[in-house]
Nucleic acid binder design. Structure first.
Lengths: 153, 153
DNA sequence: CTGCGACCTCGACCTAACTGGAGGTCAAGC
DNA sequence: GCTTGACCTCCAGTTAGGTCGAGGTCGCAG
């Protein structure tokens, strides 16, 4: 009856999400999003793609690769009813990765704060000059990317 | 008297920091680290470079570009006594950027947690399926990278 | 039916962040 | 003095994550 208000053109998605249409095709190519085609071969997107896109951009912003994101999204709705186990496993993996990143970021921030706060403008005792303080050995989180293993900063 | 135990060769720095020597030269090229040369034109690094490297890798891991990092490091020791104002200004900028990223990451994590916790395996009421919840409009932090503006995920 | 604007594909190009190899030098041990 | 391994420069190539343009189609308004 109605004209399926669910479906969006690529232009609409680009405008609403802020993601260029070129990037949308690119993401589709890489399997991060999907679309259906009209009889005339044009893409049509479900509204849910907007949420996927927001997710993608957020994840990217904090340093996750499109591949990581794709792998995560691959287990979601589009690939039909993932098992509880799949879901739980993937989510746990992401959790520790995210935790590790949050941790790293927070540490980075707090160190800057500490330095500013201490008034050490000569930087003689600043964390940037000051040597060993060996930040906690990263804990049990997934240290996948090997960073910050030597000294605090 | 002693043979200046402070100075490290590129190989030593590479080994201790886990950063390949190729990358070390690359970073120097880009102005992120510096070295002095021996009479034979070989690089020698101060131990402090190890902290800089840890900083660089950590910052990179959380999605900051080398350029951002270089700009931040540029105001530090190597460029001689930055003014209190410079210091404070730059640090504040970094602070809000870092805060914004920590925020984004935390939100991402908590959403995953919520989803797992809710047991919505059909995903019918899952945040990934469920539309408007419009995350708080990003606050006053620096939304430099424009992400996650549409819906929660 | 004719515009024309939004869409299509495909391949070339771009930046960031590196890596690797060729060809040469330096310095310590034999 | 010769070898060997660590170092040097320069430059080409790689991967990720896109952008751009050419040349063609779709679909709606007039």
């Amino acid at each position: 009856m109605s004209k399926l208000p669910e479906m969006l053109t690529i232009g609409q998605v680009a405008e609403r999400s802020g993601v260029p249409h070129t990037a949308l095709r690119f993401y589709e190519d890489r399997g991060l999003i999907s679309s259906v085609r009209t009889t005339g071969n044009q893409r049509r997107y479900a509204r849910s793609v907007l949420r996927r896109l927001a997710f993608i951009r957020t994840a990217q912003r904090v340093g996750l690769s499109l591949e990581d994101v794709r792998d995560a999204l691959a287990t979601l709705p589009d690939s039909r009813t993932p098992t509880k186990t799949d879901w739980a496993k993937l989510s746990r993996e992401w959790q520790s990765e995210l935790d590790a990143r949050i941790d790293a970021l927070t540490r980075l921030r707090d160190r800057l704060t500490g330095c500013i706060g201490c008034g050490c403008l000569s930087l003689r005792s600043c964390f940037l000059q000051n040597s060993d303080d060996a930040m906690a050995p990263l804990g049990p989180g997934a240290p996948r990317l090997k960073a910050a293993t030597e000294g605090g900063i």
